[in-house]
Simulated scan of single mutants.
Amino acid sequence: MYTIKVKFEQRGLEPVILNNIKADQSLLEVCLHNGIELHHNCGAVCACSTCHLYVEDGMHLLEDLSDKEEDFIDRAVNPRINSRLGCQCVLQEGSVGEVSITIPDQTQFLGE
């Protein structure tokens, strides 16, 4: 089981701690199942960059960055060294721990 700590760059949103999160889910799925808005214009198939987020801690608990994901991160708004796509950050089976993420301001995207 995982604990996911979520911070937001968007004004007015307070940090959230999600406990007892099962493995083999993407961070996008975890966010959506817990009422946290994270855009995913391509339907979570690694074909855009709208589910872009920052992994602050726990990167070793996620599946490795693929070349395809890296290409789309380059297209994201304000990419950083710890940037990932939420749809590609799958919590590894057989591990437990804490992952801390920051979600960029989602008001910059129109539609879904």
Rank of each mutant, 00 (worst) to 15 (best):
T3R: 04
D64S: 12
N34I: 00
K7A: 14
E69N: 04
V45K: 14
E93N: 11
I21W: 00
G58I: 05
I4N: 03
M1F: 08
E9R: 10
C51L: 07
F72E: 05
G12R: 12
C89Y: 07
F8M: 08
T107L: 13
L53R: 07
Q108L: 13
S26T: 15
I36S: 01
P79I: 05
H33T: 12
I21S: 08
Q108V: 13
V30L: 06
R75Y: 13
L53S: 03
I81G: 01
F109R: 08
L110R: 14
H60C: 09
S49K: 03
L62A: 12
L18M: 08
I4L: 10
E69R: 06
T3Y: 01
K22A: 15
K22I: 05
N78E: 15
D74I: 01
D74Y: 08
D24M: 11
E37L: 11
K7T: 15
V45I: 13
K22P: 01
H39S: 11
S66A: 06
D67Q: 11
E69K: 12
H39V: 09
S66P: 02
V96C: 11
V99N: 03
G86T: 02
N34R: 04
Q88F: 08
S95F: 15
N19P: 05
C48I: 05
L65R: 06
L28D: 00
A44D: 04
V55N: 08
K5N: 15
L65W: 00
Q10W: 10
I73R: 00
Q25Y: 12
P79E: 04
Q108D: 04
E93L: 13
D105C: 11
L65D: 02
Q10Y: 03
A23W: 02
V90E: 10
Q10H: 06
N19Q: 13
C46Q: 00
R80A: 15
D57G: 03
T102M: 12
F109A: 10
L110E: 14
L85N: 01
C31T: 11
I103L: 15
Q10K: 15
N82D: 15
H40L: 09
I4E: 04
S66I: 04
L18Y: 00
G94Q: 09
I36W: 06
L27F: 04
E69V: 02
D24L: 10
M59T: 13
E37S: 04
V45A: 06
G43Q: 10
E93V: 13
Y54A: 12
L13V: 11
C87N: 02
L18V: 12
H52E: 09
S66L: 03
T102P: 07
S95H: 14
Q106D: 10
P79D: 09
L110Q: 15
V99M: 10
Q106K: 05
T107R: 13
V55L: 10
T50W: 06
N78L: 02
N41R: 13
F72T: 02
H60N: 13
E98C: 09
A47M: 11
G86F: 01
A23N: 14
L91H: 00
F72W: 09
T3I: 00
L32S: 05
D67Y: 04
G86K: 00
P79Y: 03
Q88E: 11
G94Y: 08
L53F: 11
E69G: 03
Y2K: 05
S100F: 03
A76W: 05
N78T: 10
Q88A: 03
C42T: 01
R75E: 14
E29R: 07
E56H: 10
I4Y: 03
H40D: 02
F72G: 07
